[in-house]
Amino acid sequence: MTQKLNRHGISVCAARNSALAALAADLPSPILADLTGMHRDTAIRWVAYARRDWAAYLAARADDQREAPATGDHR
């Protein structure tokens, strides 16, 4: 199916990854592996990715905001 869609210029990679991340956030890894047919180690990585702790990212963003010069540009 992916190959057929790609031939018509429709990329499904981003949608596939988003769907897997959503499933991984809601399902335990053994269920995700059985449901999708992926290897259990791959399912474990997806679940870890989906439930990742964002504290380090938020701290880095806060550091960036403190270090950025005040230009009036709000991102």
Rank of each mutant, 00 (worst) to 15 (best):
M1D: 12
Q3N: 08
L5V: 01
L5Q: 11
L5T: 10
R7K: 14
R7Q: 15
I10F: 06
I10G: 00
I10V: 13
A14M: 06
A15L: 13
A15N: 11
R16S: 09
R16E: 10
R16A: 12
R16K: 13
N17L: 07
N17F: 02
N17T: 05
A19S: 11
A19M: 14
A19L: 15
A21V: 07
A21Y: 03
A21G: 04
A21C: 05
A22P: 00
A22Q: 13
A22R: 15
L23M: 14
L23F: 08
A24K: 10
A25H: 07
D26N: 10
L27F: 05
L27N: 09
P28D: 15
S29N: 08
P30M: 06
P30W: 04
P30A: 07
P30D: 14
I31G: 00
I31D: 12
L32P: 07
L32I: 10
A33E: 04
L35I: 02
T36R: 06
G37R: 05
G37S: 06
H39S: 11
H39E: 12
R40V: 12
D41N: 14
D41Q: 12
D41W: 00
T42C: 06
I44N: 09
I44C: 02
W46I: 02
V47F: 05
V47I: 03
A48P: 00
A48S: 09
Y49A: 12
Y49V: 01
D53M: 01
W54P: 04
W54L: 05
Y57N: 07
L58Y: 09
A59N: 09
A60E: 13
R61L: 12
R61C: 06
A62V: 02
D63T: 10
D64S: 09
R66Q: 13
E67F: 00
P69I: 06
P69G: 04
T71R: 11
G72P: 01
H74A: 11
